[in-house]
Design a protein around this nucleic acid. Structure first.
Length: 222
DNA sequence: ACCCAGGGTCATA
DNA sequence: TATGACCATGGG
């Protein structure tokens, strides 16, 4: 992928979808919570869980750690995988408190932050990079399934390209600009929800599999 | 009834 | 290292 190609795709996405104003969250900690809860989960469902946490006064690392496991899982219920995510959320909160809080973490260099995040059980590369970019405002390009799908269809990467390889491909050709990386990933997600579907979709009726027109030359997929 | 969603871990070969 | 099973709710 060349710098010009990366720029051209960004410009087209921005023209088509407009600024996305990510991350939807009020504080760095809330963004970190959302990053864990949104793992393989529609954002709509994550919002419900975060609303429950907020209503319970639990948008705080120490309070989440002190919360009973079953109660925490009940609050997370709408976001799916609630038992798993209750454990993961507590692991993340433990790490934050052990480090001296989010403020202290904000003074860590990016590579140390990233290694620390990846050492937390339940935080993988995408979740770590979400947190680095959107909570700590570091110039880390976030790669996800949407990114791989879109750019492989555009012929700009292999369909099975590894996470780090694709991340480096972007970071190599783009300036390390937090605002740019922020908007780029958000646009890729918006485009993935709307246009770049897993399977071609019929533009008339919206059906994916049932409609014979799905996948026809008229249906846009990228 | 099926497919998908802003993934990650763990056991197995 | 590379698959597969598993986690689980809600919308289309």
């Amino acid at each position: 992928m060349t710098p010009r190609q990366a720029r051209a795709v960004f410009d087209r996405l921005l023209a088509q979808h407009g600024p996305q104003h990510w991350w939807p969250g009020d504080s760095p900690f809330e963004i970190m919570v959302g990053a864990v809860l949104t793992q393989n989960t529609a954002w709509r469902n994550v919002e419900r869980a975060i609303d429950y946490l907020r209503a319970a006064g639990l948008l705080d690392a120490a309070y989440i750690l002190a919360c009973d496991d079953d109660r925490l899982a009940r609050l997370l219920r709408p976001s799916g995988y609630f038992n798993v995510k209750a454990t993961r959320l507590k692991a993340l909160c433990r790490w934050i408190l052990d480090a001296g809080g989010v403020e202290a973490l904000g003074r860590w260099p990016t590579d140390r932050l990233r290694h620390g995040l990846l050492a937390v059980k339940g935080v993988g590369p995408e979740t770590a990079d979400d947190i680095l970019l959107y909570a700590f405002e570091r110039p880390v390009f976030v790669v996800d399934a949407y990114t791989r799908r879109l750019f492989s269809r555009l012929g700009l990467c292999a369909p099975d390209v590894g996470y780090e390889a694709l991340r480096h491909a972007f970071e190599r050709v783009l300036p390390p600009d937090v605002a740019l990386f922020n908007e780029y990933h958000a646009l890729i997600v918006a485009h993935g929800k709307d246009v770049c579907r897993p399977r071609p979709r019929c533009g008339e009726c919206g059906l994916q599999r049932s409609c014979p027109a799905a996948g026809s030359p008229g249906a846009r997929t990228t």
